[in-house]
Design a protein around this nucleic acid. Structure first.
Lengths: 220, 220
DNA sequence: TAGATTGTTAATCGATTAACAATC
DNA sequence: TAGATTGTTAATCGATTAACAATC
């Protein structure tokens, strides 16, 4: 009976949230789907359809109250609910994530990092400490953790996953260049940086070829 | 007359490439769309449709030659064509990207970083140097650069974009939490880390609610 | 009330899957 | 040749857009 929310809709929610944050900063306190659509370069229809998956946040003849809508989408996204995050792999990328202040601002708290390298174990990164990966189970059994972030080489990532699952972790933010071996009761959000870069380079090459093709046809 | 390749197809190419790389390592030299589909957990139909956007890479009754297909997709993605990349913003994330060896392995070469912070200007990160952001135009006028990576706060990112465009940059890999002010002749690939994290937390909460709803209905 | 704008149904568009003739 | 598997057309499914009645 419950309508399933499509992945496409979910992926747009953070962007709505961002535009609503901007509107609040500009002290705009109401907005119509039409005006928001113009700003965001999407259709008003899509905005209304998307929002109506979650309930009638607007009011006919008036539009949407910016603060209210912002708060509602924030609730959906779990903003400010203090979500506990650990980072497995305290290399450059893991450390960069631990240093990123915006996560904390939105309620995502980096509690600890783990690594095998003695050179980083014991190091303090912003507010969190780097522990030995050996102590992963010990840590997880005594601290509530919602999300495990994987920032380690793909071979190591595959090894650590069963350990995380055994400790009850059910959400993984995966930066390793691999499809994780998990069942569909486990949530995985992939950030594959090199794949993102390859898509960009694909589009560059395709554009270039298209231009050359057109030039060949019309010019000399 | 040229068929436009959809974004969905492009986004799957790097994953095909990855699976084909794995197959090569396993010394598998041919594979049918059916077997590949099983590994990748997609439909064989989708694989054949996707690949046929770019040409008949397979052979009836035989399947696909792994090495050949790998090479062809690699060509499409611009792997090993030496794409020159600069990184604007040499903070933790910018430095982490500069330190990431996998980009270079695929032919994406980090040529230089730029920052406003005197503490990092002049620093050497792996093979590249951090320059003053003031010298951006000077550098770009004397070095070929294909992609500019933005790893700086959103306000700074918005400021630097017109300068990049003026120097002829037409592809941006954007990590700043903002929609860049560019026309549609400029390619932008966004990596919005906090949005990715929010999607994960949305799914966590939705899952949790769904479970509670079910428990409330059946259990006590 | 009149005007504006939502919520929602219907129409369109695009992407995925199924089916099968072509062919190696 | 017979079997296998592609390339491609047709059918289905889902997501986006358009339209409009409901209503503030």
């Amino acid at each position: 009976m419950k309508k399933k929310i499509s992945k496409a809709v979910i992926s747009r929610l953070p962007r709505y949230y961002r535009y609503l944050s901007d509107l609040m900063e500009e002290n705009v306190d109401r907005i119509s789907s039409n005006d928001l659509a113009k700003r965001m370069k999407v259709t008003a229809s899509q905005i209304r359809q998307d929002l109506n998956n979650f309930g009638g946040f607007g009011q006919q003849g008036y539009g949407y109250n910016v603060g209210h809508l912002h708060a509602e989408i924030g609730k959906l996204l779990g903003i400010h609910t203090h979500i506990n995050v650990v980072i497995i792999g305290a290399g450059h990328l893991g450390q960069a994530l631990a240093n990123y202040q915006n996560f904390e601002k939105r309620g995502f708290i980096i509690r600890a990092l783990f690594d095998v390298d003695p050179a980083v174990i014991g190091k303090k990164i912003r507010n969190s400490e780097v522990y030995s990966l050996k102590d992963l189970e010990k840590y997880l059994s005594s601290h509530p953790v919602d999300i495990a972030t994987l920032t380690l080489p793909k071979e190591r990532a595959a090894e650590v996953v069963p350990r995380l699952l055994a400790c009850g972790i059910r959400a993984i933010w995966n930066f390793a260049h691999i499809d994780l071996p998990v069942g569909d009761d486990v949530l995985v959000e992939n950030v594959h940086l090199s794949e993102s870069l390859m898509q960009l380079s694909y589009r560059m090459l395709a554009d270039k070829e298209e231009k050359e093709r057109l030039a060949g046809k019309t010019g000399d």
